[in-house]
Amino acid sequence: MSEVVIQAEGLTRYFGRKKAVDSLSLSVRRGSVYGFLGRNGSGKTTTIRMLLGMLHSTRGQSTLLGCDSENLTPEVKARVGYLSEGHPLFTGMRIGEHAEFFRNYYPTWDRLWLDAALARFRLDPKRRVGTLSRGERAQVALALCLAPQPELLILDDPALGLDPVVRRDFLESIVELIQTEGRTIFFSSHNLADVERVADRIGIIEEGVLRADCGLDTFKENVRRVRCRFREGQRPTISLPGLLRLRWLENEATLTLASFDESRLDRLRELGAEEVEPVDAGLEDLFIDYTAPLSGRV
């Protein structure tokens, strides 16, 4: 097993009386791409800011590259790339001026790589950030974040506001980046199709609580949708362990189960289901069933 590069234990943060993050524990190993998922306001950004030591935790603690988050040394900071939500840059400054400004902080700054990346995106370093489109600004922010060739990359919703072409380009950058031995990427996103492509582990946070933390394949094998049909007019009460969601259409029920195994299908047959079949569902469908408000559940 490879070394742990992000470790959080019981991380908790209150804002006034509101608990934004509640006893969150997770660990991310070197070489993995971790997709951090949650609805707006679920505590993703708060968690990321605590991991980076930009926000004190009320309780609990975390480490980045083995170093306590609240006391990150400049040496560790230089090995971590962080892209904050909304790609903030100085609108009056030129792209090239940003590069000159940031490179002073990073001994590993790769100027040739940055020049090549900007050329690939057809971005002239002389342009002022204020004149860039939203997608272009995101590309500049990402390129600047990658220029020091960080071994740990933390991205807060990097795909926000990107059109499909730019987003695909960004995903290709991620795939290319992770090829380098020892790189780790931790990113939050609302775009679950992206997450399915590039993440190998996912975490789902809901109202500050980490409700899932596992391999993407494990998640998809365990959280499954099943459709079953009962005899005309029959709607038995279905209670199964791990039932996340149940929807009826006429005499046909579609269920989402959190811990799927074949015995669940037998149980449905015992309840009188005539046809029982697992149905295809992507991460987006499963995520919605996993995190939809309680009223939408059974």
Binding site: S32, L171, E172, V175, Q179, V198, D217
Partner: peptide
């Protein structure tokens, strides 16, 4: 193949 399919190389 990872680059061609835009899929995580670990996968």
């Amino acid at each position: 193949l990872a680059l061609q399919l835009v899929i995580n190389p670990n996968t």
